[in-house]
Computed example of a mutant assay.
Amino acid sequence: MTATQSSSEAFEYKPVALNERITSDGSSRWPVEAGRYRLVVARACPWANRSVIVRRLLGLEPALSMGLAGPLHDERSWRFHLDPDNRDPVLGIEYLGEAYRKADPGFDAGITVPAVVEIATGKVVTNGFQQLTLDFSTQWTALHRDGAPDLYPVEHRAEIDEINQAVYEDVNIGVYKCGFTNSQEAYEQAYRALFARLDALSERLATQRFLVGDTITEADIRLWVTLVRFDAVYHGHFKCNRQKLTEMPVLWAYARDLFQTPGFGDTIDFEQIKQHYYGVHTDINPTRVVPLGPDVRNWLTPHGREALGGRPFGDGTPPGPPPEGERVPPIS
Rank of each mutant, 00 (worst) to 15 (best):
R38Y: 00
D199K: 11
D74P: 03
A206M: 04
E306S: 06
G110F: 03
E159V: 11
F264Y: 13
S28P: 09
E12G: 10
P84Q: 13
Q189Y: 07
R145S: 10
I160W: 02
G106R: 11
R297C: 05
S27M: 07
N182A: 15
P318D: 09
R192S: 12
E33H: 14
N127P: 01
D295N: 14
L223S: 10
D170Q: 14
G70W: 04
D161C: 01
H237C: 07
E9M: 15
I173V: 15
P15G: 07
V154S: 08
D85G: 04
G67H: 00
G325E: 09
H235G: 03
E159H: 08
R242L: 13
W30Y: 15
D150V: 13
I173A: 00
G67N: 02
A186D: 04
P114K: 02
A206E: 13
C45E: 04
F238P: 04
E185C: 04
F80G: 00
I273L: 07
E155Q: 14
T2R: 15
I22Q: 05
V250C: 02
I111H: 03
R21L: 12
P262K: 12
L308E: 05
V167T: 14
L57Y: 11
A3W: 12
D135T: 10
P323H: 04
V167C: 10
Q208H: 08
E326Y: 07
R288W: 00
V289C: 01
V124Y: 00
R157L: 03
E159K: 12
G147P: 11
H235F: 15
V228R: 13
D74S: 07
P329H: 00
E306M: 00
F259T: 07
G236L: 06
I216P: 11
D269E: 04
V280R: 04
D83E: 15
P329A: 01
G279D: 10
N164I: 13
R76W: 03
L211H: 05
G213D: 09
T181P: 09
F264T: 05
I273T: 09
F270Q: 06
A166W: 11
D25T: 08
R56A: 12
A69M: 07
I273Q: 04
L68H: 03
Q5F: 09
R29Y: 00
S51P: 05
R21I: 05
P318K: 06
I160S: 03
W78D: 01
